[in-house]
């Protein structure tokens, strides 16, 4: 019992540390790649690490008219909740640290908590820019939840139809890659769902074109405008780990493959191979849905964000879902 407990604790610490490292790496990678696409040199890969270290050394300013306890509490909650998400997601082909204790529905709810913490922190800042940013963050959240839910439910529903018990657990999804369960029509449907999820990702991470809550030129950083020092460092770490969490969710839902198992390798080499494969996949997802999108688009207005998600992506998602359903019916006939 105690040994099991210690293993879990060790797992949590490992996941937290690797989440931070991979997250900051992804941020640095994004900055370099975006810079190269814009014909700039860009910062070194280690820049986010340096930035966070610097922020921890800096003074932590709490504005006079802020609600101090909420203002200081929000970044801690945000970081803690993204760590928790990682504990429920399979990483590098390994089962989740807290396997069997939560499923995709829980992950979906947990994903809203960092955003809610940001909103609380924004409202507690007592700055009009942060207030507008917080309102926009809430609207963005409401906007992207629906397409996100469609994607998750579509995948789980397909698993359930295929007679797999407990379709919402990540272990079942990992054991039964969803691509193997569908025919050609279903593959098109799944590709559409994958696209929807990749477009939800930049909004979840507040990146251009969905960075309206922060909107540098409009709100001077919006929700984060009053944050500095340690608190801002915690939010930067949250941003990094959240990138890992979202990318891992995409990988867990659509690419739950283990390269080592396919190659018939086991033991430590398998672990290393899976880790490399996982980092490659996560980087690829981050590259497509963060770097490429943000380099090639202008920022949307907040009402445009809502119509993009509720109209275009919801319709696309439902269409994808319909294709998966049609595929199932065809398969039955």
């Amino acid at each position: 019992m105690i040994q099991e407990f210690l293993v879990t604790i060790a797992g949590i610490i490992t996941v937290a540390v690797s989440g931070i490292i991979i997250g900051l790496f992804l941020m640095g990678f994004d900055r370099i790649v975006a810079a190269r696409m814009q014909a700039r040199i860009g910062p070194p890969l280690t820049q986010p690490f340096t930035d966070v270290r610097k922020l921890f050394c800096k003074e932590n300013v709490v504005p006079e008219n802020a609600i101090a306890w909420m203002f200081n509490f929000a970044p801690v909650v945000a970081l803690a909740s993204v760590f928790t998400i990682l504990l429920y997601l399979p990483i590098a082909g390994l089962p989740p640290v807290l396997a069997g204790q939560g499923d995709l529905i829980l992950v979906m709810y947990l994903l809203t908590i960092p955003a809610l913490a940001l909103v609380a922190g924004g409202f507690a800042s007592g700055s009009p820019y942060a207030t507008i940013g917080a309102q926009r963050e809430m609207v963005t959240m409401i906007a992207y939840e629906f397409p996100l839910a469609i994607v998750i439910i579509a995948v789980a529903w397909k698993l359930a139809l295929s007679g797999i018990a407990m379709p919402f657990t990540l272990a079942s999804i990992q054991a039964n890659p969803v691509w193997g369960l569908v025919g050609p029509v279903g593959v098109i449907g799944l590709l559409i769902l994958l696209m929807v999820l990749l477009i939800v990702t930049p909004a979840e991470l507040s990146r251009i074109p969905f960075d309206t809550p922060e909107a540098e030129t409009e709100l001077a950083g919006g929700i984060l405008v009053e944050y500095s020092g340690r608190n801002l460092a915690l939010f930067s770490l949250t941003q990094g780990v959240k990138t890992v969490a979202m990318a891992s969710l995409v990988v867990a839902l659509f690419f739950p493959y283990s390269l080592a198992a396919a190659a018939g390798i086991s033991g430590v080499p398998a672990l290393v191979l899976n880790l490399i494969f996982y980092i490659l996949l996560v980087t690829l997802v981050a590259f497509i849905s963060v770097s490429v999108v943000r380099v090639s688009m202008a920022r949307f207005r907040i009402n445009q964000v809502v119509s993009v998600y509720w109209i275009y992506l919801a319709v696309a998602g439902l269409f994808g879902l319909l294709l998966v359903m049609a595929d199932h019916l065809l398969g039955v006939v």
Partner: peptide
């Protein structure tokens, strides 16, 4: 103008 719209790639292109 491109930068004000949040379109930094165009901003770099125009200034280059």
């Amino acid at each position: 103008a491109a930068h004000e719209l949040g379109f930094d790639s165009l901003f770099y292109l125009a200034w280059r």
